[in-house]
Design a protein around this nucleic acid. Structure first.
Lengths: 215, 215
DNA sequence: GTCTATAAAGGGATAGAC
DNA sequence: GTCTATCCCTTTATAGAC
């Protein structure tokens, strides 16, 4: 029985590529993210991984342990990725554009992921704040300083950089997560909605830059 | 056996206040919203309602029917409430302020609700678009016109009103739903985070108004 | 490591008394 | 309307052969 620790579930060392353990993990990840812990059957995971149910218990002792492994891996990959973008060396406006590019691109292809992470983090908030924070989590300090410099230079209006980050993330992630809700509210057809979402990147960019204009 | 239709789960006619059926519904609502359909046990619902498991099946024939009743009620209350605010008779800026007031107030007390609605709507998007849309769903047309009038009058810069609504909703709801995630990203303590969220109303107001300034 | 077979527990649903 | 007792299918977990 093995219970391998893996920080990044996307890591694939050449030797063990497509090992049974990995196939199990990947199948579990996909299903848990889509249907949640309680909504996923061990049998489904086994089927998707192309192996037998008993093997799941051989590699991961219980459903609970398998689930926990998935949750930790997913969150430990996603959070640093978000922060990482803010820590690049680009100038502020390019950084914001880059963030919107990468983000809106990623999310529109991974609809389930944000909801899964949000739900999970809400279920055990303290656990993750404790277990993830101590690590090598990058800090958005550089971004904060950059914003303050631009304010001092009179290039943008005064603004609390933390709220700016939260506004950016909110306007990038939420519309995709809440797509069906918005479709209801805005009364758009599927095609119109698709069209609407494809405009987001440009619209958010314009909205934010307009807001940052100095008074 | 009864299967009462109730549009608003907060309705309580004086006579049947705290009827068994209502207590069941309310217990089910609280648990389903918090833990989802698959994550909630019929036994839990019975316990919370202070009655026996068999009674659940007496009032609602199956778990599935009970769940469906809850989901429809919750969504049929929430969506019109969101749109309703945009249809009031206030001038644009007051309307935006009113929206932020009501919204940020409501959501900060009901953390689970938005995630539940989003998850549900993502699971059966078309079903709800069909079953909710035909009804008396108010349309945000008045708000759209109002925005266009202000643009024509030169009071605000040109902006697509749909994106404005989505920006407002995103910046209001998301930060509360994603509280633990933001705590990780911004590296704030629980108290600092509480403090941060209490500033949201004012910050979003300022951010939006700054963005709407004419060029 | 991987399988088949089976135990053990969990949980939705119903029967029937009151 | 409400309860107790019980059924029975589903699902997790283990035993043991290969």
């Amino acid at each position: 029985m093995r219970l391998t620790k893996r920080l990044n579930y996307m890591d694939k060392t050449p030797q063990e590529k497509e090992s049974t353990e990995q196939r199990i993990f990947e199948a579990a990840r996909a299903l848990f993210v889509e249907k949640g812990m309680a909504g996923t059957r061990m049998q489904e995971i086994a089927d998707k991984a192309g192996i037998n149910k008993a093997l799941l218990h051989y590699y991961y002792r219980s459903k609970d342990k398998l689930y926990t492994a998935v949750v930790k891996a997913v969150i430990n990959v996603a959070i640093p990725k978000i922060i990482g973008i803010f820590e690049s060396d680009l100038p502020l406006k390019e950084k914001i554009e880059h963030f919107l590019d990468v983000y809106i691109g990623l999310i529109s292809k991974n609809t389930f992921l944000p909801l899964f992470i949000l739900t999970e983090l809400n279920k055990h908030p303290q656990e993750f704040i404790d277990s993830v924070m101590p690590k090598d989590l990058p800090k958005p300090d550089q971004f904060f300083k950059q914003v303050e410099d631009e304010i001092s230079a009179g290039n943008i209006r005064p603004i609390n950089p933390r709220h700016l980050i939260v506004n950016l993330i909110s306007m990038s992630i939420f519309p995709f997560v809440a797509k069906p809700m918005e479709q209801l509210i805005l009364q758009l057809s599927e095609e119109e909605m698709q069209q609407f979402l494809s405009q987001r990147k440009q619209e958010v960019r314009e909205f934010v830059f307009a807001s940052l204009r100095p008074y």
